[in-house]
Amino acid sequence: MMENSPIENDAVRRFSVFHRFLHIFVMISFTFLAVTGFSLSFSDQGWAGLVVSLLGGAESAAGFHRFCAALFYLVVVSHLIWLGYFKVVLKGRWTGSHTMIPNATDWENILQNFRYIFGKGEPPLFNRFSYLEKIDYWAVLLGMQSMGVTGLLMWHPEAFSAVLPGYAINIANEFHFHEAILAVGYIGVVHMTATHLTPEAFPLEKSIFNGRIARRRLKAEHPGEWKDRYAPTAPSEGTTDPADAAS
């Protein structure tokens, strides 16, 4: 159940409805992709047999896997279209401190964070997106391209082996499988712990679901964004609200 309280004075918007929507789609399709994909690769395991039979057999599970893959890629395409909309209609910027583009500050932040973790300094002053969030973003955006290409090769082996040598399908299979383990491992270990297992957010980081974040948390976790949005005395214009700038 999502947050149901009236707009707290203490909360500001961090993610637009569109981005919450995309995240839910990615979340669901990623989970089903992992469940169906691993059930098919580890087919000799008991749990895999159970999952596959629940989905109506191996063919059906494979169909479901491809459906979720198409859904996932639809999110990627929607995001890219949104980037165009952000640039052209909202007159936003693709580069800069509020965007997902990595910059030198991120490297500083990583070092500063390690100093902080070992008790040798202040916490780093993250901007709108911390380096971990940038890694999350680029891992998905780039990872989806390679998963998409290798997946397509296995989806239509006849068509691709007319152009590529036959062993390309086997290579694609290996890549797809190992990258899947990498992706699930990364999401399961890094993404989950880095978002939910923090004292401020535990047990559940809700801001990607209700789009809101407490002012004091924004100030503590994204001081750079806080400074740009609330510190300047000039009133912020509607279309340049950084809440829309989640590129």
């Binding site: 159940m1 149901n4 637009s16 409805v17 569109f18 209700n210 789009g211 509607g238 829309d244």
Partner: peptide
């Protein structure tokens, strides 16, 4: 602004559905 209208409308729908 049409963008703001859609944005605010979507926000209201989202908050109602998840309540």
């Amino acid at each position: 602004s049409m963008h703001r209208k859609i944005d605010l409308g979507a926000e209201a729908v989202w908050r109602t559905v998840f309540s």
